[in-house]
């Protein structure tokens, strides 16, 4: 099943942890498939990134520089990757199932008429892959047919790669047909936060509808979040109710996280929320409803009024640290 190509997503001249996961998954796949693991960096001004990718043990880093690739756009990136895959005889393309990876990989699979393994948690040597379906209630084994395949991997299912090699860099140019590319990047409004990124944090504190409003996320939950140096998450119900931005949503239709410690506050633990956090190492639930399903997955449960318990916990953590 031959050579693997890792799509190395980057932001602000850096690889987020999710890209290091893609490197690891790529190396895993290359070992199992008996091929080499390469990576591709697309964009402009990517010299440092290409060097860094090579240090993660990628055999060849294909560096594709083109002004049309300055910002991520599904049509241009698909065209560039498809061209590279064909030119280099790549059999497996791997990206992480981030917002960008999820946008890109299906389009690339359709372009290559290749099978897509979406949000994969395991890659097997026999050509099968495993993925969660039905909000994590089902684990499916899929066989991917043919020689070329496209796989997006779940960020929590693989460890991040470490720097263990020095590959070579090869500059590659692509022909991006002008007429075929119609998508135009207008702008990116970034959510600025001093907190760790949700998908990278060691500790995540999530709030649900029990917080009652957005103001309480700020005044009640955030002090605990910051005391723990944690990232803040939320249930779909809290996002639906407009308490917090969708970017914080943990679950089947939001982000999948697996931190060392996940603290669920005032959220019931709907199936679709559990899908996004039940692989966390330690789960704590604080809820006044003793019957809430979140207690069935929690390692430590506290049946209590969150408006009393959360400030108390913040104080207790503060005391512990000092």
């Amino acid at each position: 099943m031959g050579d693997v190509l890792v799509f190395a997503e980057h932001q602000h001249g850096k690889f987020p942890k999710t890209t290091l996961v893609a490197f690891a998954a790529g190396k895993d796949a290359a070992t199992k498939y008996g091929g080499a693991c390469h990576a591709v960096v697309l964009g402009t001004g990517t010299d440092a990134l290409a060097n860094e990718a090579a240090a993660y043990g990628m055999q060849t880093v294909f560096q594709v520089e083109n002004p049309k690739l300055e910002h991520y756009l599904a049509d241009a990136y698909t065209a560039a990757l498809a061209e590279l895959v064909k030119a280099k005889g790549i059999e497996t393309v791997i990206a992480t199932a981030t917002a960008m990876g999820k946008d890109l990989t299906p389009r690339l699979a359709a372009r290559l008429n290749a099978p897509l393994g979406a949000d994969i948690s395991e890659i097997n040597a026999d050509g099968t892959v495993m993925r969660a379906m039905y909000a994590g209630n089902v684990f499916a084994t899929l066989k991917l047919a043919g020689t070329t395949r496209v796989i997006s991997v779940r960020a929590t299912a693989f460890e991040a790669a470490t720097k263990d090699g020095a590959g070579k860099i090869e500059k590659v140019s692509v022909t991006l047909a002008e007429g075929a590319l119609t998508m135009q990047f207008v702008g990116l409004e970034e959510m600025k936060s001093d907190r760790p990124v949700l998908t990278e944090a060691r500790i995540v504190v999530s709030g649900g509808r029990g917080l009652k409003n957005g103001e309480n996320f700020k005044t009640v939950l955030e002090p605990l979040v910051d005391e723990l140096g944690a990232a803040m998450g939320a249930s779909r119900a809290a996002v639906d109710a407009g308490f917090v931005p969708n970017d914080l949503q943990v679950g089947q239709t939001g982000k999948v996280v697996a931190p060392e410690l996940y603290i669920a506050v005032g959220l019931s633990g709907a199936i679709q929320h559990l899908a996004g956090m039940k692989d966390s190492k330690v789960i704590v639930a604080i809820n006044k409803d003793a019957e809430a399903p979140i207690f069935q997955v929690a390692d430590y449960g506290l049946v209590a009024d969150l408006f009393k318990a959360v400030p108390e916990m913040k104080e207790a953590v503060h005391k512990l640290k000092s």
Binding site: A99, T182, E190
Partner: peptide
Amino acid sequence: REVDGGLETLRFP
């Protein structure tokens, strides 16, 4: 569009 870490604006015909 809701992307990781923010909101992206795209335009297309």
